[in-house]
Computed example of a mutant assay.
Amino acid sequence: MHKILKIVLLIIGVLSMVFLARIVGAGDEEVKELAANGDTSLLEPMTWIAYIILGITLALVLLFVVVNLFANTATLKNALIGVGAFLVVGLIAYFTASGVETPMQDGKMLSASGAKWVDTGLYMFYFLAVIAAGTMLITGINKMIK
């Protein structure tokens, strides 16, 4: 498996260097001109390499997280408690948020539903920031006491 991974990484690395050399060789002005005309043929291969690497990375992270969660029941229990707590904070933020139609800078209107979701995101951020700061403060005080 390690040898196969090394070969795949080598191929991706060589392809990336070739595509980068094409972009650098074309020069800034030509790249800008092509992009202004809607021609992305020079940049598109490098973009696809980035998408492929991102996809592989996400797939591997998810795979290892799921395998690790189910390999250890204590880890799974703690993860489910964390997800549940996050959902509770999300529900509290959602029901605390108000949804009022709001005019935006470009003259359009933000719907009441959209405004409620924006408020929910902000409230979640505030709640989680306060929880994190409080946890650090309590932990620091407990360490000073001991």
Rank of each mutant, 00 (worst) to 15 (best):
Y126F: 14
K77T: 10
L9K: 07
L76E: 04
L91P: 02
E29C: 00
N37G: 10
L34F: 05
E29Q: 14
M144Y: 11
A59I: 12
V8E: 08
L122V: 13
V31F: 11
A35P: 00
F70E: 01
A26S: 15
G25V: 05
M144R: 15
A36R: 11
I141K: 09
L69V: 05
V31A: 14
G13L: 14
I7C: 01
I138G: 01
G90M: 09
L62T: 06
M46E: 04
I131H: 06
W48H: 09
T47F: 15
T40G: 11
A132P: 00
I81D: 04
F95R: 12
F125E: 03
A21G: 07
V65F: 05
A133V: 15
G121V: 07
L128G: 01
N72Y: 03
A129F: 14
E44V: 06
N68Q: 05
R22W: 10
G82C: 10
L63K: 12
S41Y: 00
A74C: 02
I145P: 00
G107S: 08
A97F: 03
L60M: 12
W117T: 09
A74H: 12
A50H: 11
P45W: 08
T47Y: 10
A129K: 05
F86V: 05
M1N: 03
A115C: 07
T102R: 11
P103S: 07
A36K: 10
E44L: 07
V61K: 02
A59G: 11
K116Y: 08
F86H: 05
V31N: 07
A115M: 14
I23S: 03
L137K: 08
L54M: 14
S41F: 02
E101M: 13
W117I: 12
L62Y: 12
Y51G: 11
L63C: 03
Y126L: 15
M144I: 15
K32W: 08
G25S: 06
P45D: 02
T73P: 09
P103C: 04
T57V: 09
I131C: 07
M144K: 15
G134W: 07
M46L: 15
I53F: 04
K77C: 02
H2G: 12
K6T: 03
L42G: 07
M104C: 05
T75E: 08
I141H: 13
G13P: 02
E30F: 08
I12D: 03
F127A: 13
N37I: 00
F86T: 11
L122F: 12
